[in-house]
Design a protein around this nucleic acid. Structure first.
Lengths: 134, 134
DNA sequence: TCAAAATAGGACTGAAAGAGTCGTATATTA
DNA sequence: TAATATACGACTCTTTCAGTCCTATTTTGA
């Protein structure tokens, strides 16, 4: 519980790797998969999501690959996570899926403290950019 | 991903409830289960863990139940979580289960930023006591 | 022009974790 | 001694996660 998914880990490692080659050079999914011992197909999907989210740019075809779409300082970790998971990390179900999703919501007495922690975590992911990871 | 378990939610709600009756009055698992619509057996186990961890005191027998073991200001949320889960929330596997558990560890390039976030989360749970939840 | 190399993406499988249930034992009280 | 509580292991069911498979599409260069 309260663990980042492997996809997010792989995504962060991957986009960081792309960032290190930000001289315009293309990086392929295969290259990253080999280098970090990440299952290729899984990584490929993660990269596709990062691409669809506009964090990296994809180039199809024979000498294709990926490059960063923006400067590392403009890529927040929260955006990377959001791109991969479709949502930010939420420590309680009611936060991500709404009050109806939680059978306890109406009588729940710990909403406000949990929101505090939640804000704290979001802040951590939001304030961290690729810049400080590279 | 990055979600507290239902057990932890129930545990926090429950121990907070016990705290509100801290005039020495006993609170039963059944009472809490009814009041918050929590499955009784599940809640019972959670309370047992809190009891074993010394956060609440159990009284068996007919007019038994639970009371707080300490002053609310001395009960950190991190302790509650730890009692229930056996470990604090760790955002990466290598943190809770060691380097060998992660196939990527040796070449992982995001350890240090993740540790930063981890420290942040721990701080949040550590600095929050029952006092501010009641 | 066509084979090779790359991304795109849906469908599927297997394993692990999470949530909840069941059954039984033990302690305490009235 | 019956009723009411906690104690606790074993089990089931469901969902999520990680990973695989398969096929399509795009692009390059020989």
């Amino acid at each position: 519980m309260v663990r980042l998914s492997k996809k997010v880990e792989y995504g962060l490692i991957a986009i960081r790797h792309v960032a290190t080659r930000s001289n315009g050079e293309l990086v392929t999914a295969k290259e990253i998969a080999d280098r970090y011992h990440i299952p290729y197909e899984l990584l490929a999907k993660v990269l596709q999501k990062l691409s669809k989210a506009g964090l990296i740019v994809s180039h199809q075809g024979v000498r294709g690959g990926y490059t960063l779409a923006k400067h590392p300082s403009e890529i927040r970790v929260s955006k990377v996570i959001n791109a991969i998971e479709g949502t930010l990390p939420m420590i309680a179900q009611c936060m991500s899926e709404g009050p109806e999703s939680c059978g306890v919501f109406s009588v729940c007495t710990i909403k406000s403290p949990l929101h505090k922690v939640q804000a704290n975590i979001e802040q951590a992911f939001n304030s961290m950019t690729l810049m400080e990871i590279v």
